[in-house]
């Protein structure tokens, strides 16, 4: 009870982001804008073919002020870090604030799945979570974002009109009435406000 009233309306404890087709461009807009002293952990699922994710991590590590890595099993989730789901694993948040991985079946033909990350994060963080769905050509993330909203978290969706692929943000807006439709600049501003020291 006290836990709940504490976090409700209070500062978020984490950010989760999901993106598919066009992900790199969109994330290049967002992640390098986060400052060194950013206070939140940022957990990300990107759909790319298995085996390609490590390149992603290297790409963003070179451009970001925050440390960027692939998630490892049972690793503690730390503020001010960017963690990508590793290729061919689902990445989940455990209630104690650690990562766990799974090789469960694909969801929407994808492992990692955005829904899997978002639903587990909603469960672990409750209202103290910001969920962001970006460009993509499928429906992964819609159910997950709805779960974030239902737990009282903040939900943001890239404006489909400005997205490289509009299906994913459109599905998210449809499944999650509470979500705010935003430009990438708007999303950056919201994330900065959420994680300011």
């Amino acid at each position: 009870m006290s836990e709940q009233s504490q976090s409700a309306g209070g500062a978020p404890n984490a950010v989760v982001i999901g993106a598919s087709a066009g992900a790199i461009q969109a994330l290049l807009h967002i992640l390098p804008a986060l400052p060194e002293d950013y206070t939140l952990p940022v957990l990300i699922v990107v759909h790319v073919p298995a085996g390609r994710r490590s390149e992603l991590t290297a790409l963003f590590a070179a451009k970001c002020r925050l440390p960027v890595a692939e998630g490892e099993d049972k690793e503690p989730i730390l503020p001010g870090t960017v963690t990508f789901a590793p290729p061919d694993y689902h990445m989940l948040v455990e209630p104690g604030g650690t990562i766990s991985l799974s090789r469960d079946e694909q969801v929407f033909f994808s492992r990692p799945s955005i829904d899997v990350l978002f639903e587990s994060a909603a469960d672990a963080y409750g209202p103290a979570l910001v969920g962001v769905v970006l460009t993509g050509a499928n429906e992964d993330g819609a159910q997950g974002l709805a779960a974030v909203a239902q737990a009282g978290g903040v939900t943001l969706v890239q404006d489909p009109a400005s997205a490289y692929a509009r299906a994913m943000p459109e599905a998210a807006l449809k499944a999650c009435r509470a979500a705010r439709r935003m430009s990438l600049d708007g999303i950056v501003a919201a994330l900065l406000a959420a994680g300011r020291r």
Partner: peptide
């Protein structure tokens, strides 16, 4: 078992 994945299952 890790809670998040057993719960999903």
């Amino acid at each position: 078992y890790a809670q998040a994945s057993i719960k999903r299952r």
